[in-house]
Simulated assay, not measured.
Amino acid sequence: MPGYRIKYSTLSIGAEDFHLCSLRDKQQFADHDGLAERAGISSATWSLFGQLWPSGEVLAQTMSRFPTEGLRILELGCGLGLSSLVLQRLGADITASDHHPLAGEFLLRNATLNELQPIDYQDCDWAEAYLELGLFDLIIGSDLLYERDHPGLLAGFIDRHSKPVAEVLIVDPGRGNSARFSREMLSHGYQQQADLLNDLDDPQAPFRGRILSYQRAA
């Protein structure tokens, strides 16, 4: 990937090992083609998609034991795609999405690293609707609520792309926007359920966030 320094790591998720290509650090930025400018992403936040965050690992661990048979699943803000990789290996019907111009490229590389078929991918701006994307039974994501306008945008996007009966799981590290998001979800008919248990067992770096769970019934 011209202009970037990358690294490789191996993680144990459930009973499987996954190999992951990521950006070496948060200082990686190259925009020779003007992708950052066109996407409205600053140089300070450009590299964040390419890091493995604790909330992303929590989501992947959660998906490794989640019953997914018969569900059409969408991951929002997939970044490096770890949770989508886990679901692809489990044989789930998974579509990954992100709005970062490099996310699809990293997702494909990581699928290849893990000897998986390419994962369906959609570039998604939450302010838009994508008719070709369709509707989903389960929508997942991690660390998505880091801007003040994200609760409304995210809830609206979920509503446009979820089936009448659907479930949503969001791993939130606690950036202060989860209460607003829950209110927005309620306005779309989603009831908040008890938080799921955190399945990331790392006493050296405990995850102090929440796994937010929402359900909408017919």
Score class of each variant (00 low, 15 high):
Arg109Phe: 13
Arg89Thr: 05
Pro101Gln: 05
Cys78Pro: 09
Arg109Gln: 15
Asp98Ala: 14
Gly81Ser: 12
Arg65Ile: 11
Ala103Tyr: 04
Leu108Lys: 13
Thr45Lys: 15
Phe106Lys: 02
Leu71Asn: 07
Ala103Thr: 03
Leu76Tyr: 08
Ser97Leu: 12
Gly81Ile: 03
Phe106Asn: 00
Glu75Ile: 06
Pro67Met: 09
Ser55Gln: 14
Phe106Cys: 04
Leu102Glu: 04
Leu76Pro: 07
Val58Leu: 06
Glu69Ser: 13
Gly77Val: 03
Met63Val: 09
Leu85Ala: 04
Ala103Gln: 01
His100Tyr: 13
Thr68Ser: 14
Phe49Arg: 00
Ser64His: 06
Ser97Gly: 14
Pro101Cys: 06
Gln88Trp: 00
Arg89Glu: 00
Leu87Tyr: 00
Leu87Cys: 07
Ser47Tyr: 09
Trp46Cys: 11
Arg109Glu: 13
Ser64Asp: 03
Pro54Tyr: 14
Phe66Met: 11
Trp53Ala: 03
Thr68Cys: 15
Thr112Trp: 06
Leu59Phe: 09
Trp46Met: 11
Glu105Leu: 15
Leu52Trp: 05
Leu80Val: 04
Asn110Glu: 03
Asn110Tyr: 04
Gly91Ile: 11
Gly70Phe: 10
His99Lys: 12
Gly56Phe: 12
Ala103Trp: 04
Val86Gln: 00
Pro54Gln: 08
Leu102Lys: 03
Thr62Val: 12
Thr112Cys: 11
Pro101Asn: 03
His100Phe: 14
Asp93Tyr: 04
Leu108Asp: 11
Asp93His: 12
Ile94Val: 14
Asn110Pro: 12
Ala111Cys: 11
Leu82Asp: 00
Gly50Ile: 04
Arg109Asp: 08
Cys78Gly: 05
Gln88Ala: 15
Phe106Val: 02
Leu90Gly: 10
Gly91Pro: 05
Phe106Asp: 03
Gly56Arg: 09
Ile94Glu: 02
Leu113Asn: 06
Gln51Pro: 11
Arg109Pro: 00
Leu71Asp: 04
Cys78Val: 04
Gly81Glu: 05
Thr68Val: 15
